[in-house]
Design a protein around this nucleic acid. Structure first.
Lengths: 223, 223
DNA sequence: CGATGTATGTCGAGT
DNA sequence: ACTCGACGTACATCG
């Protein structure tokens, strides 16, 4: 990891063309080869950057220090013209042990599958990740009358999730062993427009309470 | 802008729960209040971060240095436990003059509207951003036989773009002054699955050559 | 303020 | 290697 603070101008020629006029900025060079140019705002997003794999070449042209970063595959190019280096510090960090995450969609799916009766008394799970030609349906189950139900789970329910479930339902309903298949769109939060579209398609909406589902799971292991 | 390299462990409690075990990392504190924790890889993306507006509080609990960053609106929390500070440097950068960009979707739409015959000889523009109840169609035009054509433009053509165009077509075809309306899905690059779905819906796909379109525009102003 | 569409999205998983 | 969907997506624009 190398940290350079310098007055520089930057030109990016790649998926788009962009230019940054001369100003003091942080240039961050990571061990994976990536280069990013940060201002003192915009949260963690750099003004400009190059992702690995790429190569940095330092050269002096007519007395002007220039750093050229070229992407090894696409040929995208980032050119930094350095006017003045204000700080330059390098430090070896080593490989990071990595991040452990909890609480994403996969977990929601797991929890709902284990507690499928959340959707209704007498409901039973057929299986999680039920495979179809166009991809896996999150949950396939039966309601209390034995009717097939396909459940699409999202953290936030938006229109494209309803479209996705619609495509699954269309396919599943071609299978005479399953048809008729009802749809349930389940999410922690469902956008009004998605709700309207779902209603129009005859799909039921269910709000999932993540904490409550997790609570069922952990009633025996509370602090 | 403050750059700290330190051995630290990190806990995030917010939209999800995450933990980073103790290891040396870069902690980047910007003037806008944002805090990000970087490893020596993963391009520009931090392992963990807090976006502004947020507040950083440094305190020592039982001899352990702790930085708590709390988001001012959502209450999300990032806690850094610092074991050893290896480098600590601050520098005022001032306000950045900002980035100038070229080459996005709006420009593609403009260019295609101006050169609608790219789609076919004798084609004519009805209008850009043709308004419907569910939103504006990118381009509405007539083919050489006077038939109405709705064009959806994307930089990258994916399934949801086809869905969007399908909804527009359904609506436009209810207008007897326009019907029948054909659909064209135009993009610099179209995903195979999007292409299949489009074919199934009777929608034509067109690949847009941004450089060529821009070339028509600039033949008189070359370097 | 919510809804919508773009992004140099990035990232990871599956094929 | 490529495709696809999720993301603590973030972000701007528009109603």
């Amino acid at each position: 990891m190398r940290l350079v603070i310098a007055r520089c101008s930057v030109d990016y020629m790649g998926r788009l063309t962009a230019h940054l006029p001369m100003a003091p900025r942080l240039i961050l060079i990571k061990a994976d080869g990536s280069v990013s140019v940060h201002a003192d705002d915009r949260a963690y997003k750099p003004l400009n950057w190059m992702s690995p794999p790429c190569k940095l070449r330092e050269e002096t042209i007519d007395g002007v220090l220039t750093w050229s970063v070229v992407h090894s595959k696409s040929g995208e190019k980032l050119v930094l013209t350095i006017e003045e280096v204000l700080h330059d510090y390098s430090h070896e960090l080593g490989v990071d042990p990595g991040l452990r995450k909890d609480g994403v969609e996969a977990h929601l799916q797991e929890l709902l599958a284990e507690h499928i009766t959340t959707l209704g008394d007498g409901w039973t799970l057929i299986r999680r990740e039920y495979m179809t030609a166009i991809g896996p349906v999150d949950i396939l189950c039966r309601d209390e009358l034995g009717g097939t139900v396909a459940v699409e789970i999202k953290r936030r329910g938006e229109i494209d999730g309803v479209e996705q479930l619609t495509r699954y339902l269309e396919l599943l309903n071609r299978d005479p062993r399953l048809a008729p298949v009802k749809g349930i769109f389940a999410a922690q939060e469902i956008r009004p427009q998605a709700r309207v579209l779902a209603a129009d398609r005859g799909i039921d909406c269910v709000i999932l309470d993540y904490d409550a589902l997790r609570g069922i799971e952990r009633t025996d292991t509370l602090f």
